[in-house]
């Protein structure tokens, strides 16, 4: 397994270089360093001198890929691509266009993201699995048909509706919790209840419906019929026979998400005022802060690759027949 993981990590390098190159090219096709300077400097007194000074200060006064004036290795290293993009491989994220240290910002903001995303993820999976198993237990009954109808309805509703509806009812009308905000102290739970609740409820429709499909496939297998014939209880069958055997497809969809929990949720964080990485990314896109977007895309790619590797590893845990070669 160790050799497999090392090989997968090595495969990640060209993928990350490709992602980096693509992000870099896309950004510079849309935005030249001059455009970036104008965006950051505002609309008044944007003189050529001011643009040149901004570019120099932020390291955008170099050629993009090849520095014809650079001697030896400097022809490659003294370029925007090397200084801004390739340095990411050393986890040197540099500074945002507004001058803040990105590493500091990311390390500060990932915890609020995690504070919302982790409980939403765990509670969400638990609720979805329980609901799906319950529905499978009553398969082909009126309850099952109504449940599927409700799942489809829940899936069809926009995520924004859950957020605004939740805020309106729970926080505005009933005044049970603060409508938004976050404090990293003992009071943090007050701010997390509503976003977690909204996240879980919004995910029930698609999650439970998907799990129901997976569980139903297993529910018709011979080993289930055998267990039932031997007098096992329905609950026992669901949790000790069907669930473990349906784990592989569940793990495929779930484990890959675990590392990405650090990245937060764009909408939830923005509406609930959670100072996490989701809103960090959204703000960076709005203000055309290329340095932050580039770093976040890079971190996102790494986390996704890590998620895929973890998924493979989790297969060996869920099904001992699986071997990673």
């Amino acid at each position: 397994m160790f050799a497999y993981i090392v090989r997968r990590l090595l495969y990640a390098i060209p993928i990350l270089i490709g992602v980096n190159l693509l992000t870099f090219t896309l950004f510079f096709v849309v935005n030249s360093p001059d455009d970036m300077a104008v965006s950051q400097l505002g609309e008044k007194y944007v003189t050529p001198e001011a643009i040149a000074a901004w570019k120099k200060k932020n390291g955008y006064d170099k050629p993009l890929f090849v520095n014809a004036e650079g001697a030896g290795l400097a022809a490659v290293t003294d370029t925007i691509f090397f200084t801004k993009s390739l340095k990411l491989f050393a986890f040197d994220f540099g500074r945002s266009e507004s001058g803040r240290d990105i590493t500091t910002d990311v390390s500060t903001r990932m915890w609020p993201s995690l504070a919302v995303a982790l409980p939403t993820f765990i509670v969400g999976i638990w609720v979805n699995i329980c609901v799906a198993l319950l529905v499978v237990m009553f398969h082909a009954t009126r309850l099952d048909r109504w449940a599927v109808f409700v799942f489809v309805c829940l899936m069809s509703i926009s995520y924004l509706f859950y957020i605004i509806g939740g805020q309106y009812l729970v926080a505005k009308t009933w005044k049970l919790v603060p409508i938004s905000g976050f404090h990293a102290d003992a009071q943090a739970w007050k701010f997390l209840i509503l976003p977690v609740l909204v996240g879980v409820v919004a995910g029930i429709g698609s999650g439970a419906r998907w799990y129901r499909t997976l569980f139903l496939e297993e529910a018709n297998q011979d080993y289930v019929r055998t267990a039932r014939a031997k007098g096992a209880s329905e609950i026992g069958i669901l949790f000790t026979h069907i669930l473990p055997n349906a784990l592989i497809p569940i793990l495929t969809g779930v484990v890959v998400l675990i590392p990405s929990l650090f990245m937060g949720s764009l909408l939830i964080e923005s509406f609930f005022g959670i100072p996490g990485l989701g809103s960090y990314m959204l703000d960076a896109i709005k203000s055309q802060d290329f340095a932050i977007v580039r770093s976040m895309v890079f971190i996102g790619s790494i986390l996704y690759i890590v998620g895929l590797i973890l998924t493979d590893i989790s297969y060996t845990w869920a099904d001992p027949r699986v071997r990673l070669n």
């Binding site: 309106y168 603060p178 409508i179 938004s180 509406f271």
Partner: peptide, 13 residues
């Protein structure tokens, strides 16, 4: 001065 990005939370508060 607290950061508020959306109108509804700001207005409600």
């Amino acid at each position: 001065f607290r950061l508020e990005k959306e109108v509804l939370p700001l207005w409600t508060k």
